[in-house]
Design a protein around this nucleic acid. Sequence first.
DNA 1: CTCCGACTGTACTGCGAGTCCAGTTGACGC
DNA 2: GCGTCAACTGGACTCGCAGTACAGTCGGAG
Lengths: 204, 204
Amino acid sequence: MEQKVDTRSRILDIAEAAVLEKGFEATSIEEIVAGADISRGGFFYHFKDKNALARAMLERYIEVENALYDDLFARARELNDDPLHCMLIGLKLLAEMLEEMPTGHPGCVIASTAYQDRLFDEGVRELNRQAILGWRKRFRGMFEEIAKVYEPREPVNMDALADMVSGVVEGGLVLQRALREHNNASEQIMLFRTFLKLLFSPTT
Amino acid sequence: MEQKVDTRSRILDIAEAAVLEKGFEATSIEEIVAGADISRGGFFYHFKDKNALARAMLERYIEVENALYDDLFARARELNDDPLHCMLIGLKLLAEMLEEMPTGHPGCVIASTAYQDRLFDEGVRELNRQAILGWRKRFRGMFEEIAKVYEPREPVNMDALADMVSGVVEGGLVLQRALREHNNASEQIMLFRTFLKLLFSPTT
DNA sequence: CTCCGACTGTACTGCGAGTCCAGTTGACGC
DNA sequence: GCGTCAACTGGACTCGCAGTACAGTCGGAG
């Protein structure tokens, strides 16, 4: 049973690296089993089909991403108790993290999944949906805390503002991928930060 | 020769609809030729392979999108000569247009292409890149006009601000696709508009 | 010693991309 | 009216990859 966990996550590691680099469809099972040094039969022992692999990858990815956000904003909170400054510091840390990744960010599986929809079953799509709704809830909560302290200068839809965090990151990653530049995502986050500063700045 | 143009664009129509709905890889040539009522041989007569099809689709799509932006901001200019207000009106029109699309927006081929990278050759990727750089140039020009009249309240990187238009649209479309909601993209654009209003509002 | 979970290995089906090519059809130029 | 050429049709084929089926192996827990 040691082996089971081991091999399974080894497959996920290899698959994730390949998928983030080339896309899901362009990654063959042949290639994964070669990388993980197992037989084709071994692969299908762990995953019913490619869909099951996609599902497991998404689950793991979302978990990691959530842990990352938890950690990021916890660190931000330690540095400053004010909800607005906590948000601003958290976003700064996020931008820095994205910038530090040498090969550029691995690219977000969410967008990739969204645009290859029909390749996946309903379970995978629903997982994707729930992940984004989770982030909406997370950031909405944070923005409500901020709004309690700082009256927004313009009326905003809180759900949309929360979605903008995800949207700006996703959009930035799309640009980055397409342009072959490497800091678009972090620049976009920094601009969003500027937006928040202006939106919640005291009305003199 | 009438036929040639006719059949070719009929293939592109069918393919575009299918690809926007299901993604490129999930769309088979079989299905395209059935829809266009031609033989497999006929398809390969017009397009060397799926890559050539992708390239032609992208070219057409980018042209349409550029014409759309031209038209949108020309209409906005007619309504108001001030560069900031022209931008704000143009974005409003864009948001409304996205909202009016009954099935939600067809989804942006750019993002889809970016995330399926290795499926395509260098030509397709470069086309994609140039399209985004074109939008950067377009919006950067507009923002520079605005900045001549209105001093930005916070320092911003003009290229990044220009990219934010594309990024917010792309990001919004990703959310929309993944969430199965229908107005995320337009909401994101409206939020970006709020950002611009705050950024370029007269410093009291 | 035996059972079981984690595999290996092989052989097979089926699908879709892409190739090759021989033949048809209709418009146009002469 | 005849040849030519572009725009196809239709069919046969190869290849790579997903997925199925299943028989056999191997090592550790009981």
